[in-house]
Design a protein around this nucleic acid. Structure first.
Length: 465
RNA sequence: GGCGACGUACCCAAGUGGCUAAGGGAGAGGUCUGCAAAACCUCCAUUCAGCGGUUCGAAUCCGCUCGUCGCCUCCA
């Protein structure tokens, strides 16, 4: 079954057909590294991770590029505030960014280009645009893109250009522009501290030009997929299209995909509202990375995700349930039991349901629904000891395949050295019916992150996720 | 003002014309159990914001009303 995605450009759900069979070029808008990323950023990055993984799962050779925006008003402002170089400042937050996405198991992109490493390529695009008459230079030497010269402008954001007129909400103090709708390709900096000397003068790039330069560098002038959150549609992506298409004379991107925002308790997340969370905030409160990952990918990207702590608790329970299921299957495989029910039909329907969900515009809710339906079907068989090791192994294999996309499997269970003697000691206490001592040890282990479950087949341990 | 998304149980959420409205969490009762945990069984929306309409048939299509959220120059 083919993959369908919602293309912002057409406003329709379209079948994904790559420019080159078997390959997919994916450019995802990355962070501006002036602070820790927040859970809204993560929602988008995690959805992009699911997209990339599902493309790979579907057999495409994916080239994934994510930019690191390391020069803009905020990075310049905050590095100056700290009195350190822009590079030192942005490198620190870039490292934090990598740590955070690693914590949430986001598969690394193949390339993470930094804007400041691509100044010559940006200048080249601006030069081309100038050659073709799409730019003008203001008195101070800044270069602007002339929107009036590009008839396709506003197509992505479905903007009524007549609606954006001087006055209204647009600041009119930028008198050097011919038209307020025009945007800066190059900002002249004179003797400012953050500037590059280039053939088009001393200055720094405008915001949008980096993505045009870096995407075409790695993926070509026309590529398959470009993603971001809905707020990127305008002006960022609209302007990228204008720059790239006017410079190359070719269509820029085939599929534009945009994630809806995460909101908190039904409201827009904002520092001023006190409902603003970074990943680090949640980890400090003791929330498990896997629960966060689950929660943020469980709502399909086209829907706003309402983040609540109750929801995060629920996500933890769900992941725990999956983890427990996997542990039981593993136990059964190790036992080597034979005979019992054949669950091939259940496995088949799980695989099909899971895949159909993801193929349907990355409907993770549908896919995860198929996963838990499968768990509900198999658990009774585990309970009644009517499943063979062979079938348990097949079930695990199917789960692992699905996990190539979700990546929600619990970390490989590894018991601390000091835990095993405690578990054995507790067994002795239990046999002697010295319950108080046995329970004390169980509590102690629980504090170490080891959960014990006494079953008819003996005591089972698993790690807290 | 322009453009757009959305309103399904206590919470999250799938479903986009036709079997008994997925799934997760929470909750209630039961089985198992030294207790706990896990698991299992049962219950938990005659109904999909409201009102009309189209249709043999609608949560799904159309219209209106109410409500929520977002974008409209640098916020993922």
């Amino acid at each position: 079954m083919p993959l369908f995605v919602s293309n912002t450009l057409s406003g329709l759900k379209e079948e994904f057909v790559p420019l080159e069979p078997g390959r997919a070029g994916l450019y995802t808008c990355g962070p501006t590294v002036y602070n820790f990323i927040h859970i809204g950023n993560l929602r988008t990055f995690l959805w992009e991770d699911v997209l990339r993984r599902h493309l790979e799962f579907s057999g495409y050779a994916v080239t994934h590029v994510m930019n690191i925006t390391d020069v803009d008003d905020k990075t310049i402002r905050d590095s100056a505030k700290e009195g350190i170089s822009l590079r030192a400042f942005t490198e620190r937050f870039t490292e934090y960014f990598f740590e955070d996405i690693r914590t949430l198991r986001v598969k690394p992109a193949h390339h993470y280009p930094r804007a400041t490493d691509f100044i010559p390529q940006m200048v080249e695009i601006i030069r081309k645009l100038t050659e073709r008459g799409f730019t003008y230079t203001s008195e101070d030497g800044s270069v602007y893109f002339r929107i009036a010269a590009f008839p396709g402008y506003g197509r992505l954001a479905k903007l009524d250009l007549e609606g954006i007129k001087p006055g209204a909400r647009v600041a009119t103090d930028e008198y050097e522009k011919e038209d307020v709708r025009d945007f800066a390709l190059w900002k002249a900096e004179g003797d400012g501290p953050v500037a590059w000397d280039t053939p088009i003068g001393r200055g720094r790039p405008g915001w949008h030009i980096e993505c045009s330069a870096m995407s075409s560098h790695y993926l070509g002038e026309t590529f398959d997929l470009h993603t971001g959150a809905v707020d990127n549609i305008f002006p960022h992506h609209e302007n990228e299209i204008a720059q790239s298409e006017c410079a190359s004379g070719k269509p820029f991107v085939k599929y534009w995909l945009h994630a809806e925002h995460l909101i908190v308790d039904g409201e827009k997340m904002a520092k001023s509202k006190g409902n603003f969370y970074t990943l680090r905030d949640l980890l400090e409160k003791g929330h498990a990375p896997l629960a966060i990952r689950y929660l943020l990918i469980s709502v399909p990207y086209k829907k706003k995700l309402n983040f609540t702590f109750a929801g995060l608790e629920g996500a933890y329970q769900a992941v725990d349930r999956l983890s427990n299921f996997i542990a039981r299957l593993n136990g059964l495989v190790e036992s080597g039991a034979d005979g019992g029910a054949d669950i091939l039909p259940q496995i088949k329907s799980f695989k099909e349901g899971f895949r159909a969900g993801l193929d349907n515009d990355l409907n993770t809710a549908e896919a995860i629904g198929a996963l838990f339906s499968f768990i509900r079907e198999v658990n009774p068989l585990l309970e009644s000891n009517s499943l063979s090791a062979l079938n348990a192994g097949l079930a695990l294999q199917a789960l692992r395949e699905a996990d190539a996309v979700l990546d929600l499997f619990p970390p490989a269970p590894k018991l601390q050295e000091e835990a095993l003697p405690l578990i054995k000691e507790r067994e002795v206490m239990r046999k002697a019916k010295r319950w108080a001592e046995a329970d004390a040890i169980r509590t102690q282990l629980s504090e170490m992150g080891v959960i014990l479950e006494d079953t008819a087949q003996g005591t089972r341990w698993r790690k807290k996720i």
